[in-house]
Amino acid sequence: MPEQHDVRLKTLETQVACAADQNLLDAFLRANTWLPHGCSQGTCGSCKMQVLEGEIDHRASSEFILTPHERSEGLALACQATPRSDLLVEPVAEVADDGVVRHPLRDVLGTVSALEDIARDTRRLVIDLDEPLPFTAGQYVELLVPGTEIRRQYSMANAPADTASIELHVRRTEGGAATAGWIFARMHVGDRVEVRGPFGVFGIGRPQNEPAILVAGGTGLAPMKSIVAAALAEDLVPELWLYHGGRTEQDLYDVEFFRDLDFRHDHFHYRPVLSEQDWDGANGMVTDAVLEEFPTCKGFAGYLCGPPAMVEAGRKVFKRRRMAPRLIHQEEFTDASDLARR
């Protein structure tokens, strides 16, 4: 068993044990001590913390995300850094009690109960869990690729009320270890899978006064499906729009599911948008469809999940329509091959 160190969090006067090969974020989340974080893989920088006492190992922290200057000032990425001694730390972002219920990070085993093709290069994967894994709509888990140490992140698409299994939407990446090499190749119903989670802060964590506009690209629909389910079940928002963008109809999925919700709920609106196929629905870039429908987004909250270019375009559209930047929330797909380049 690797050596353990005590890590104290200054603001909350909390202390956790952290193994010498365990990252600080992992140690705190397992102890159910919430820390600000986003991607948990060293790309977003939102888990930066100040190391006030003790020595850490930055491990794979990228110099692009954590600059040499920041390192010299004692900053560290909690999701990467491991302890070399006992530590006193303080997150850079505020640890506010924002009324959002947080769930501890756990390792859970599960069994693949469904695996189906639902759209072009896209599969729905359902894993029945050996024990419940509570999460907040919008959060994600990591799956361990069998026989490797590779972990890949996927957002839950099921309603958070349903804790017995998780539904994930997976898009095939050419040459990807987890997708082309596993989920789209040798995975079968009945396989055992190692799941770690929940992670992430994306989503509608508590009731809000602002109507919400959700914009998803491709499998960015997964967290949105969970958010829509939670928002409707728990009455979290006064009104809700869901935009889903794809190139052609082959990229859309769960269309009937959302059309039915739209039909049954006056305050939910479903907008599928295609960029490369004429059809009886909306055409063009999914973010342009938002621009067209909303003369102003002032007083709205925005949620974006999809490829980085779509998220970037969505942010611009929301700002152009004068949505307050603090009300714009985003979850980007981070491609593992991008990480290696950083």
């Binding site: 002032k298 929301f318 700002k319 152009r320 329509r321 004068r322 949505m323 307050a324 930047p325 603090r326």
Partner: peptide, 14 residues
């Protein structure tokens, strides 16, 4: 300055 700019950018992010 801080509060002034916060309010300006919040209301007119474009």
């Amino acid at each position: 300055c801080r509060i002034g700019l916060e309010e300006l950018f919040e209301a007119i992010p474009n």
